[in-house]
Computed example of a mutant assay.
Amino acid sequence: MPPADPIAETGFAVPVMADLACGVGSRSDSPDLGMVSGEGARVGGHSEDIMDLRLPEELVALAAADALGPLDGHGSSGRDQEMYQPVVSIARTGEPSRPSFVPRHDDLLDRVAEWGPADTPAGEFHLVPVRLECDLAHISRWMNDPAAAAFWELAGPQEVTQDHLRAQLAGDGRSVPCIGVLDGAPMSYWEIYRADLDPLARHYPARPHDTGIHLLVGGTADRGRGLGGLLLRAVADLVLAQRPSCTRVIAEPDIRNTPSVSAFLTAGFRFSAEVDLPAKRAALMVRDRSLRHRL
């Protein structure tokens, strides 16, 4: 699915048809949002390169039925001017619209939008599913940072990043792009994806429900002070807490990206193997449920 990364170092409940206002502010200490990242599993370098797996009819039916049911999300807390604020969007028909930030079928990842916050030493952290109209400019700017562009391969006009995001948002929910919000301020881009349903699964002994992580820390002021490892640990723990069927969290940073590999090790991942992928030689990093309280 996603890209190769650099890591220079490293919901509120809404009614069924509520919408999220943009309300995006930059961190006061990050005037120039820059980057940290965990590399993507975008094998072949393109988001449309995903496994052509047929889902069970029962799951398809369940997802279709669920798409008509209630949705709950979680927002972030923090400084009011930097928070995503809930608003109800009423169409011309007078009917409220569904939240555009929630993928059509999020069941494949147990509803990332509902995972809630994680308390970290750096503050309260939320994963908020991407909403294009609010988040595209931020993410595109981060992707055009030279340090990020070398690995994510999404530099250029906003349309480049937009196509990458839309491929996930319009998909079946096997990859969910998110904004990382720390104490109310958007400061990172994440992709939470089903590694066992990704092309990556062709290159390692995947287990059912293996869950992958990609991370890009956007702000220069947020790099070089250990946030990468700290947030990777928090999100990996969120995955294991919210996805009981998942026994491992997977990542595959470029083997040459020493700061990225170091951040994953700091976050409690173990180095499992070197893996030759179409676009890179990767370090397969694994955080095991059975070891999460030891590492």
Rank of each mutant, 00 (worst) to 15 (best):
T93H: 13
D52K: 01
A4L: 09
S262M: 06
P99T: 11
I192A: 04
S262I: 00
V160Y: 02
F12C: 12
A41T: 01
N257Q: 06
M51P: 00
D135G: 04
L154W: 10
V88P: 15
E274S: 09
L197A: 06
P121Y: 01
V128L: 13
V261R: 12
L165N: 12
L68F: 10
L265R: 09
F12V: 11
Y193A: 05
V217H: 10
R289D: 09
A64F: 13
L68E: 09
A137N: 08
R207E: 14
R256N: 09
P2M: 12
D52C: 06
D276E: 13
R42H: 11
V24Y: 12
A113N: 08
R42T: 12
A18L: 10
M187L: 05
A195F: 02
L265F: 06
A148Y: 06
P208W: 06
R294G: 01
R27V: 05
F271M: 02
E133P: 10
M285N: 07
S26E: 05
R289H: 03
R248C: 00
P129R: 02
S290E: 03
I192F: 01
A149S: 10
D107K: 11
L216S: 14
E159K: 11
A150W: 01
G226W: 07
G44V: 04
L165S: 07
E114D: 12
T258E: 14
R166H: 03
R281N: 14
L197Y: 09
